[in-house]
Design a binder for these strands. Structure first.
Lengths: 172, 172
DNA sequence: GAAGTCATGTAAACGGTTACATGATTTT
DNA sequence: AAAATCATGTAACCGTTTACATGACTTC
């Protein structure tokens, strides 16, 4: 069975601990969503597919009796996740609409990239601030490893771009 | 008529000069594709839509007689482009699969984020190098404005991330 | 005359978002 | 009793990629 990045988001989350689809969505929304989002419309059908393929295994939670189905990785699922993590890097594509505005600014009579740079600066500033907030709670929870590295990289990157745009806007 | 980011890529390119679909594809492939790609499967149908909506106007090129259809912005098309450039920033979403690997590294028995960081470093290094090559030709052509700003931002950003990953990998 | 480039286009499939539908449980 | 949250799921739609089909013109 072919897996895509979103499949690995699910496998990866289940690698932390067993979870239901709702939990995965909540977790994604406060972690990977800054570089990879996922909607219910992807998560639930994908849980089904992964389960059919034997990479995860779900069972109805009898404790809560609220229709909750908890999934966990099977050994095969864990192997696939590990393989992917060890694989040579796949093609990376980026989509950043704010770069388009920088690129095309000046086409029209709006006097160069300054406005686009300021808007981009503000956006990255805000994201950096939000990530710094998350970092606080992560520190409190004494978290470590990949998630914290990703968080620190996100903060550094957003602050760098905000700063670059600010300086460039000032001199433009 | 509703326009999306790809529509504006086309309008933006036609803002530089009149072009055919093939030209747009070539140009995108060596400029915006680092932050926004476009395929023929999007470009040709979209040229049709934009033309039907009166935002661009095409005419068969009688000089070459090779089936080439050259499009240019109509005044209305230019107005829409300018509006978009002046608009408050739209939602920005990023998708970066290499961040997923950083985030999930350590889940499996692969010993932390070092390998993922090194792969990411190499990728951004390569992109930075390619962009620096483009910068050379841009300098030679004495280019300026939005495209050059976008290019310099791309170089700065890729070098920064490569550097950050390198340092982090070394200390991890 | 073969290979490469210029040029237009379409069909199928994939990936993803949005909006909706349903209902149980928990909190106010 | 009402509102919020937990929890699952689907259907319609949009955006994008990939692969294919076609043919003229140019270069070697």
């Amino acid at each position: 069975m072919e897996l895509n990045a979103t499949s690995y988001v699910i496998l990866g989350m289940l690698g932390f601990r067993p979870m239901c689809g709702y939990d995965i969505k909540q977790l994604v929304d406060k972690s990977t969503r800054f570089f990879w989002a996922a909607s219910y419309g992807q998560i639930y059908p994908e849980l089904r597919r992964l389960s059919d393929a034997g990479l995860i295994k779900g069972q109805a939670d009898s404790d809560t009796a609220r229709g909750r189905i908890e999934f966990e990785l099977t050994p095969e699922g864990r192997r696939r996740l590990e393989d992917w993590l060890g694989d040579p890097p796949e093609i990376q594509e980026m989509r950043d609409e704010s770069m388009l505005k920088v690129f095309f600014s000046g086409t029209a009579g709006n006097g160069g990239p300054r406005a686009a740079l300021e808007a981009k600066r503000d956006h990255h500033s805000e994201v950096a601030a939000r990530l710094r907030g998350i970092e606080e709670s992560a520190k409190a929870a004494d978290a470590s490893g990949g998630p914290v590295t990703a968080l620190r990289l996100g903060i550094a990157f957003n602050e760098f771009v905000a700063d670059w745009c600010d300086k460039e806007a000032a001199s433009a």
